[in-house]
């Protein structure tokens, strides 16, 4: 089934807003704005229609946090979810797409968004002794030279 038809069926079935687009290669990417509560039903419907490949989950920080679920199945589709900064919770889609686990863990540790029902919420990329907060957030500057100096001092003390 073509992505346009899938989109049409999906919107009719769940009563969603009409899609917008963003740039893509070679064709434009369809963007569908949904609410966090609709996520599971939309992903389940997509699975029914044969869209199984989730490329990744991107998180963006504006005034709100935005999650982008990039699907690909011989056509592009991005689900867009906006989250209020005081309620950073979305349901995990791991039960529907087991391959989403690493993407969700990465967003969780980098931005502090809680994926409810994530089977293994251990850190994925950050070190075991990480105490620097959520490194990808805009207000986080853990890479300043001050942090570097601090670390080298610690090391000199520890290396003898």
């Amino acid at each position: 089934m073509k992505m346009e038809n899938i989109l049409k069926k999906l919107i009719d079935a769940l009563g969603l807003d009409s899609p917008t687009t963003m740039l893509g290669i070679p064709t434009e990417e369809h963007v569908l704005q949904i609410l966090p509560t609709q996520l599971l039903s939309v992903v389940a419907k997509l699975g029914e229609y044969g869209v199984w490949h989730l490329s990744t989950i991107t998180c963006l920080q504006d005034e709100r946090f935005i999650l982008l679920y990039h699907f690909w199945c011989f056509g592009n589709l991005t689900l867009r979810i906006e989250l209020e900064p005081d309620d950073l919770r979305v349901p995990s889609i791991c039960p529907l797409i087991p391959g989403a686990e690493y993407y969700e863990r990465e967003v969780q540790e980098m931005y502090g968004i809680e994926f409810q029902g994530l089977p293994n919420p251990q850190p994925l990329l950050l070190p075991d002794n990480w105490k620097g907060g959520y490194p990808m957030r805009k207000d986080e500057h853990s890479n300043s030279s001050a942090a570097g100096e601090d670390r080298s001092k610690k090391l000199k003390g520890g290396l003898s």
Binding site: N143, S145, A147, G148, S152, L155
Partner: peptide, 13 residues
Amino acid sequence: SGAYNILGGIDKL
């Protein structure tokens, strides 16, 4: 150099 997870060259350690 300058990344949050990087200490620097080997000679830092």
